[in-house]
Nucleic acid binder design. Structure first.
Lengths: 142, 142
DNA sequence: GCACTATATGCAAACTAGTTGCGTTTGTCA
DNA sequence: TGACAAACGCAACTAGTTTGCATATAGTGC
């Protein structure tokens, strides 16, 4: 997710590029970590661009609708977002410091797809997506 | 999770078996579906044993601490609980009607363990658990 | 069966994440 | 530079969950 190309893309679709929107796009293009609305709010404050929480929630919803962000199902109770431009991947979540790291799942993906096919047959489900998270402790917190 | 043996176990640990506690244990031992606090509250009402929501939340916390229930990471925003006595498994979530079905993952588990080992080496993470959910549409909602 | 006491419960209020309505500001284009 | 719709801020609201405190009750000993 390149901030420059994203803003150009949005502009061609007729959307405005406000300072808040630009900053939020910049935040997500400079990290692969899943962020919450609160994370974004605090980051904007730190950067000297304080914004109302309503604006943050609406902007995340907007970027989601534009398929520039995607929701991540992680820790219960709080919605996390990450750039949608990343390759499909999974997460590694430290149960102590709560840091989240992306994992490239190439080798396992095939196995998941195989299971998904079998499940579809057995249960009558059509599977369109999946999420896989690993919980444990990072090098620091062991 | 056998309701009878659970209550006996709790009694030997010095915990009381109130009617609410007994009913909640009974609910979880008679289903494999992950339930929310609200689900439990409504079920208790239906059964003719209305209980305050605070009690439900405290009871779920208690059973979690006793390792008789476990949290399930599913749809964002609401905590789901299920019996901890079930074999390790994953979930199938219908994006339309929100119903949740358990999936026995035998064949895929090996692949996940393999990935987990590699990840541990690469990132310095120690992995103690994982969650895998499939999203799609059930036979009814297709 | 009765009294005692700590555990479990109910109620009300608070808290957190997220949402909505509405009036105001501002980015973009002519 | 002015017009106007998109984006914004504010305040109030909702849902899920938590907390403090006073009350009820399960389990123990008499």
């Amino acid at each position: 997710m390149n901030a420059q190309s994203v803003t150009t893309h949005l502009r061609t679709l007729g959307h405005r590029i406000s300072r808040a929107r630009e900053a939020i796009i910049e935040i997500f293009s400079s990290t692969t970590k899943p962020l919450t609305a609160i994370d974004v709010l605090l980051t904007l404050e730190k950067v000297g661009l304080p914004v109302n929480k309503t604006t943050v929630y609406r902007e995340l919803e907007f970027l989601l609708a534009q398929h520039l962000l995607q929701e991540v199902q992680i820790e219960s109770g709080i919605i996390h977002y990450e750039s949608a431009a990343q390759d499909h991947h999974h997460h590694l979540i430290c149960q102590t410091c709560k840091q989240i790291v992306a994992v490239d799942p190439k080798e396992i993906e095939q196995g998941i797809d195989k299971l998904a096919r079998r499940v579809r047959i057995n249960e009558g489900f059509t599977i369109s997506d999946h999420s896989l998270e690993f919980y444990g402790h990072c090098a620091h917190c062991q």
